Structures are given as C-alpha cells and as structure tokens.
Computed example of a mutant assay.
Amino acid sequence: MFSVVSRLFSSFCFTAPPARNALFAVAALVAPLADAGVLSLTNGDRVHGELVVVERDHVVWKSETFGDITVEKSKILSLETDKDLKIAGREEPCALAGHRRQQWELYCDEGSGWVMDFPAIDHAEPYINFVGDPIIFRGNVAASGVFEDGNREREDWDVSANFDVRNGDFHHLIGTQYQNQNSADVTNLEKYRLSYDLRWIFAEKWFAAGNSAFLHEEARNIDLSSTMGLGLGYLFFDTDKSAFSIQGGVNSLREDFIDPSLNDKSGKRYAAGRTAWDFRYKFDLGPEVYYNQELLQSLDSSEDYQSNAEIGVRTPLVKGILMEVKYAWQYDNTPSLESAKEDTKMTVGVGYSW
C-alpha cells in the first residue's frame, strides 16, 4: 500500500494539473487505509479501526464506526495492525507480521522473528501508548471448618488466601494459610504459612524466579521454618483456561524447633536443590482442577529431603463464589522424634475469587 502511494507522488511533478488533482484525491483515500487496522471475527465480520489493548481474555478495538468495542479472544479470527506493539517479556517495540491459527508472528528490534500464542498474551498495546506497566491483580480466598459440640467437642479451621499481582514482566505470587485444631485430644495446634514468589519474564516463555516461605507448625514441632532461593523457570502456557510451569533452583533452608529435645539438633540449616511445578485447567462447564508440588533435596545429605503438594477442584456456585475440595500432602524424611514423616489432609470449603 505504501509503495502505491510513493509511486503516485513520484509521478506528481510530471503530471498535468487536472491529473494532479485526481491523484491528490486518490492519495487522500489510500493513505488512511495504509494506517488502518482490521479485526476479523469468526462470524465473518471485518471491523476497520485501531487496536487499543489486548488483555488476557479480550481485545479492546477502536472501530471507525462504533468507537471502542470489547471482543472476546475466542471470537477473533485475525487481527491486523501497522502499529508497533509492547509485548510482555520484551522491552523493545515489536511489529505484528501475521495472525494465523491463533498465533502471532512478531518481529522485534533484533530482527529475528518469533511466534506467540494469541490466547496466552496477557497484555499488549501500541508501543506509542506505552507509558508504564499496567498492574493486574487477581486472587482467591477459601475457608473450611469443622465445629462440633455435645458428646464431642471439636473446632478445626483452615483458611487460605492467594494473590497474583502482575506488573508488566514481573509477577508477584503471595500465599497465606492458617490452620487451627482444637479438641479434647488436641489443644490449639496452630499452623501459619506465608510464601512469596517473584517471577521476571525475560523472554517469551522463560522467567527468573525468586522464592521464599515461612512456616510455623506446632503439630510437627516446627517453631519456624524458612526457605529462600533463586532459580529459573519455563512457562509452557498461561491463559484463563489453563496454565503449566516448571522451575528449578537452589534454596537455603533453616528449621528451628519448639522442643529441641525432640530433635538431634536445636536447629538445622542446609542448602537444598528445589524443583516445583504448577498446573491448572478450567473445564468449559466451569470446574477448575489444579495441582502443584515442591520438592527440596539437601545437597549435603541424601536422606534429608521434604516435599509438599496440593491437588484440588474449584467449582463455581454463583459469580465469584466457589466450592473447593482440596487434598494436601506433606512429607519430611527426617522429622522430629515422635512425629510422622507423612501428613495428609482433605478439606471441603467455600471461597471467593476475582
């Protein structure tokens, strides 16, 4: 299109005045089309206009006729724009060369092309409009409990909250958990856990990871357990429907015990290799399954290792409100004396997500 315009203007000086006026009219019509974008929908509609922003599950498009419209990604067949884009994981502007079969072909400053899944794009916008990284905040809270009074008295609480804060290429994952068991046989066995993971997406699928966790668990004689580490991860996919990532690295682990006499040492500290993976999948009818696991292996002793995992199902009840069934598993190969190596727990509760 641009070559047509340039040829028209190159012949301008050698054209008679009446023809020149006609060429002005043609150029005036052609030039706007050269800059315009086209949004093609699965129903066959084509909407001319400009891209405003691509979000996780929809696209905002400025139509020449209707103004700003919001379209779900699943209804988009292809998207064409001549504007350079800011893509998560890339600091430099990128040009969209093609949109085919739900994939974007992109070319950035370094000149090499790469392909990215269109549904997996969390945020993209015209580079000229990029003045700062947007902040995206998601999360969920869940609670379950058992309360009995009469012949048996029992109170069990299990409350958790998880937050996902995304600021451009940085993802902040925060997890909290509180448990309390109180009955005639067990008195106020409490558990607190706080975790924080930082991910920096420096390429399309790769991210640098920093992780930390702090734990107090009276049932396992742990006064304070802390882990901190660095690693590298790979994001296979991350959409509203499904996500899967793995990571590995090195951690520093320290454990202090409530009753030191139940352990060989009053506290222990060691370096450990860490592997972790996270998976979730949301079915079309609404339920979502998830599975995550972490393994810590001491670099000094092959017998000193521990692992924890969660597998669960979240089923929406009404908008934002869900029912959650979760199975949690913990294993410590070198626990305190009188403590079992393995702990399991099944919970059924309600929660809220946004």
Rank of each mutant, 00 (worst) to 15 (best):
Y290M: 05
F257E: 07
D158G: 14
S245M: 12
A88R: 07
N182E: 05
T176K: 01
L299F: 10
P134C: 00
A209T: 07
C94M: 10
Q247F: 12
V131G: 04
D122M: 03
S144N: 09
S261Q: 07
S307Y: 07
E148K: 15
W277I: 04
A219H: 00
A309H: 01
W61V: 06
E55D: 13
R280V: 04
D264I: 14
E310V: 00
K319W: 05
I69A: 12
I311W: 05
Y270A: 12
N21Y: 12
A213Y: 09
D149L: 09
H171I: 12
T70A: 10
K326Q: 09
N129R: 10
Q103H: 09
F137D: 07
A219M: 00
F2V: 14
V71H: 07
Y331R: 15
R7G: 07
R46M: 11
F207W: 09
A28E: 11
F137N: 07
V348I: 12
V141W: 05
I321R: 11
Q293K: 00
P134R: 03
S339G: 09
G132P: 03
G145L: 14
A208R: 02
A209I: 13
G320E: 05
T344W: 04
A16S: 03
G67N: 06
D259L: 09
V59K: 02
R274C: 08
C13P: 09
S74R: 03
K62T: 11
A209P: 02
H172M: 08
V165I: 11
S298M: 06
K62N: 15
E190L: 07
K83R: 12
P18E: 14
A161P: 08
Q177R: 12
M1H: 12
P32S: 06
D185W: 02
S252Y: 14
H48R: 12
P93R: 04
S266E: 15
S144A: 11
W114C: 02
Y107C: 00
V71G: 13
G273P: 05
N292M: 02
E148F: 03
A272E: 02
G267H: 15
G286L: 03
L41S: 11
T42E: 15
G139R: 08
G37A: 13
V350R: 02
E148L: 14
H58P: 06
S112D: 02
E303N: 15
L337M: 13
P32W: 10
Q177F: 14
G37N: 11
A19P: 04
N263Q: 11
N221A: 08
R166A: 02
L235Y: 01
S40T: 11
I76N: 03
R193L: 09
N292E: 05
F2S: 08
K191L: 11
W157H: 13
F237W: 14
G98T: 02
W61P: 02
S3L: 15
R90L: 05
P18W: 09
L194Y: 13
T315I: 06
I121C: 10
V53M: 10
